[in-house]
């Protein structure tokens, strides 16, 4: 019948118009959800090599409908039971943790714990440097993978930056990831951590800038006050001389302080840095080697020593060698960009 056919034509036209008109509304809702933090975007590009099971996790999660969170929570509790009872080995715990991150990738806690567990517990557990290198790299990767699922909140940036700062003593990466956390609402201590990291890098101007910022925000910030005073008193004279190109005077200035405290890590770093700026690499290498011998945990000094020694063809003592994970990492440098806040 003609009338019927007319209704069909008009009806399907209306369907088409609604479907097209719906897209802006749908986009607006999705945009709002991202802006408000009601959801995190599904990672678009690979920040790190994804565990291929991540895809399975997404599909499984969808198939479970509302119960994906329950499954993740139950597994997480199981993991804690394994952990607390001591019945499960740490590797078993790790497997369960990873499964939880796949099932509920927008739950931050499992990512945080997984990264920490790998970089700290499993790292310490083994004495094999190769394994240590693997655990540390995997710990960092887990945090990065977590960030790619949850890029719009500070927690995992902070965790990653702290791991670089405290575990790896890689202050360049530490400052980079601490600063990434600044994009989002964050606790007050993040700025102070950035200053600490710059101080150790060393980049005293930036360190002072950040301490300054902390003091302006809170004039009673004791840590910032103390750190500023220390820097000005101990290292800044040498630093300023270095910047003026008066390298010999700068070395003398920092040496005066080193007489007071011969194994001052920051002072040694500053001294090595002055030599590097002056282009006196062999002397810089000696300072880094000294710092490495003085502190087994001064991984930065060990790495720098390693880099310079390789360049200059000097053989290092075993106690001056860079930690094995550095050697592993240096073979395959990872280029990582700080993801900018993505809204779409």
């Amino acid at each position: 019948m003609k009338k019927q056919r007319g209704v069909q034509v008009v009806g399907w036209l209306a369907v088409l118009i609604l479907l097209v008109g719906l897209q802006p509304l749908s986009n607006a809702v999705n945009y709002r959800r991202l802006v408000l933090g009601m959801k995190s975007p599904t990672p678009l590009t690979k920040m790190v090599d994804f565990d291929p099971t991540a895809v399975t996790g997404v599909i499984m999660g969808a198939a479970l409908g509302g119960f994906q969170g329950v499954a993740a929570s139950m597994l997480w509790m199981k993991m804690e039971e394994l952990w607390d009872s001591g019945k499960g080995t740490w590797l078993e715990c790790l497997n369960v943790m990873r499964t939880v991150t796949l099932l509920d990738p927008h739950w931050l806690e499992p990512w945080r714990i997984t990264g920490w567990h790998l970089a700290y517990n499993l790292y310490v557990e083994t004495k094999d440097p190769k394994l240590q290198a693997i655990y540390l790299a995997k710990g960092l990767d887990a945090l990065k993978e977590g960030i790619s699922w949850n890029p719009n909140t500070h927690e995992l940036y902070l965790e990653l930056a702290w791991t670089y700062f405290d575990r790896v003593r890689d202050y360049e990466n530490a400052t980079k990831w601490f600063r990434a956390a600044l994009q989002f609402p964050h606790p007050e201590f993040v700025e102070r951590m950035i200053a600490h990291a710059y101080e150790r890098l060393p980049d005293l101007d930036r360190a002072l800038d950040w301490y300054d910022y902390c003091l302006k925000r809170n004039p009673d910030d004791g840590t910032a006050k103390g750190a500023t005073a220390t820097i000005r008193l101990r290292y800044l004279p040498a630093w300023r001389l270095m910047q003026a190109g008066k390298y010999d005077e700068a070395i003398r200035a920092i040496d005066r302080y080193l007489e007071v405290e011969p194994n001052g890590t920051i002072a040694l770093h500053v001294k090595a840095h002055i030599y590097e700026q002056a282009g006196r690499e062999r002397e810089a290498l000696d300072v880094w080697r000294l710092a490495a011998r003085l502190s087994a945990l001064d991984h930065q000094a060990r790495r720098k020593a390693n880099e310079l020694a390789a360049k200059l063809g000097v053989t290092l003592l075993p106690s001056e060698q860079a930690p094995s994970y550095y050697l592993e990492q240096m073979q395959e440098p990872r280029r990582l960009e700080v993801p900018q806040r993505r809204l779409r």
Binding site: L64, G66, F67, G69, V70, S73, M74, M77, W107
Partner: peptide, 24 residues
């Protein structure tokens, strides 16, 4: 009480999950 946070999340996940799953 199991672990701080875990039980609160589980409570919410079970409740909302059930409503959505059985609603479905």
């Amino acid at each position: 009480y199991l672990q701080p946070g875990a039980e609160l999340k589980l409570l919410i996940d079970i409740g909302l999950g059930s409503i959505r799953f059985f609603g479905m």
